[in-house]
Amino acid sequence: MLEVIGLRKVYRTDRREVEALRELTFTVGAGELVCLVGPSGCGKTTLLRCIGGLLEPSGGTVRVDSAPVAGPPAGMAVVFQEYGRSLFPWMSVRDNVALPLRQKKLPRGRVNSLVGEALQAVGLEGTETAYPWQLSGGMQQRVAIARAVAYEPSILLMDEPFAAVDAQTRADLEDLVRSLWQRLGVTILFVTHDIDEAVYLGQRVIMLSASPTVIQDELTVDLPDKRNQLHTRADPRFTALRTHVYEQIQAAKIAAQPSPGPVR
């Protein structure tokens, strides 16, 4: 379970302060798939880095399974948007996936079986000896997902993972995330700027305001668990939900316009 309580982040430079996150409180239950969506520049990445223990918040706490986060917590894996930079170009696909497991000091046999299973789960059998840069963008992001899955996290953070792949690949990868989530029972916090993607993937959608960020609204996606690119997206309920999210994001943008953020 992931708890975010009163999270606040102010970036300070010599001359000014920029309040990125004002006050964020939400919970992601064990085994839940929650999407965070917000207007561009709303501090989604800042939030994710605070949750991942990569960035120190200015206030508030993040708890993973009741333990406060100070530095990257055990049992959490992150999939970054920039797969090309997140994968190590000097290592084969197999070594990229295996390296975090070796850091965990798992026995060699266990590492090999986890790597094999993870690559199979994302549909990349046979690419073990290739280098990431020899693969297409979508396949590279699959490698990054395999690396995260092989790590056996209880919580998976995904930071706009499909923002840089084409629409068809994106649909495939969305279905991949849904099926991995259902099979592995992992908790997923999925950050995106794509409203359709958020509604299609999530059990819940948390909408963020423009920066300085608060929670604009929260929505339970009452679509059937079995989702399908064709039928789910054509479902009137899906359309109604996405309209609601869209309106909230628009409202957040408009609310942000009069004051361009406090600059002190």
Binding site: G52, G53, P72, R85
Partner: peptide, 21 residues
């Protein structure tokens, strides 16, 4: 690359492993 380094940190690489890898 900051993303590569954050990746290593998020997987809890030791400081030595971050230098090495």
């Amino acid at each position: 690359d900051p993303v590569a380094d954050e990746t290593a940190r998020s997987f809890r690489f030791s400081p030595w492993a971050r230098v090495r890898h």
